[in-house]
């Protein structure tokens, strides 16, 4: 009888005889979010359609040989399926597919840029306000509240209307409209994170303000801010095209989805399908961003 056996199972068993369990490699937070998102069919369909539309818009010159601004009077308002013009032609005889692709560029840029700028401006102001607190917070937040007193569409129309038509002015108007909500969401997220114990611990162990903001605050508010920014993209696309629709964004002959909806309005009696086409794209893009935002939110909720 050996000593080893008499001491029970918990003592020195030769390593080779231990049951081998292969532990799955632990994945990081964002990787696990991505994995969960990949399992969500709806989110994936949305993501793929967005990527397709974005790529097609920016590869427009490769996909079509027509010029978006040049039409032919004899080929006005040809129906969908016309030879040489798969999606027909518009009221000036320009190829619809070409205009929709080039229009995507303008519309997508007009939606993306304001959200990106709002993320940058509103995000920094909100994080700063939340992190510093006190009087600075009060000043920044009350200023944002004033802009909140305006309904977003009205504020955008008011600013763009005063500045005059043009893509640049529309971008300014949309950015001003989107900054306050971005300030509000980053401020409240930062205020919550700032009060948590690990921030206190980081400070106690000698981390400076910048390190705390970069590692702890930004690392923790990135999720909700990203979800919110994705849903803002949907709003921004609709508003940007809306501004062009009432003549405050892109100017003719630029191809832009909202402007195309406007100029094709006279065609609703003769070619209703063509008149409605640009809106289909606005709808698909905006719906996809909204659903993607929902999918991202549930992928981030760790149950």
């Amino acid at each position: 009888m050996s000593i080893v056996n008499s001491e029970g199972p918990q003592t020195a068993t030769p390593i080779s005889s231990l049951p081998v369990t292969v532990m799955p490699r632990s994945v990081g937070y964002w990787q696990s979010v991505w994995q969960r998102l990949c399992k969500d069919k709806v989110s994936m369909i949305c993501l793929i359609s967005l990527i397709l539309i974005i790529c097609a818009s920016f590869a427009a010159p490769l996909l079509t040989s027509y010029d978006p601004a040049i039409g032919s009077v004899i080929k006005r308002l040809k129906p969908v399926g016309t030879e040489g013009h798969i999606l027909g032609t518009d009221e000036l005889g320009r190829d619809m597919l070409t205009r929709l692709l080039y229009g995507g560029r303008t519309s997508l840029i007009m939606g993306f840029v304001p959200v990106f700028l709002a993320l940058l401006i509103g995000g920094s102001l909100g994080t700063f306000a939340g992190f510093v607190g006190g009087r600075v917070n009060a000043i920044i937040m009350r200023t944002a509240d004033v802009l909140f007193a305006f309904p977003s569409v009205l504020l955008a129309v008011a600013i763009a209307g005063a500045l005059g038509a043009g893509v640049g002015n529309a971008l300014v108007a949309l950015t001003i409209v989107l900054v306050p909500p971005m300030i509000r969401i980053t401020e409240s997220a930062t205020t919550q994170v700032r009060a948590l114990d690990f921030v206190e611990a980081a400070r106690a162990s000698g981390a400076g303000n910048l390190t705390i903001i970069r590692v702890h605050v930004l690392g923790n508010i990135l999720g909700p801010v990203l979800v919110y920014a994705t849903s803002l993209l949907s709003v921004a696309i609709i508003m940007a095209a809306g501004l062009s629709f009432i003549g405050l964004g892109a100017k003719p002959p630029t191809a832009e989805w909202g402007l195309m909806l406007n100029t094709l309005r006279a065609a609703i009696y003769s070619q209703p399908l063509i008149a409605a086409l640009p809106g289909v794209f606005i709808f698909i893009v905006s719906l996809s961003f909204n659903m993607l935002s929902d999918g991202l939110r549930s992928a981030m909720e760790v149950s």
Partner: peptide
């Protein structure tokens, strides 16, 4: 979600 995402000026045209 469609109601929230639809460009209402387009819905009007449709």
């Amino acid at each position: 979600i469609s109601g929230v995402s639809i460009p209402h000026y387009w819905l009007g045209i449709v």
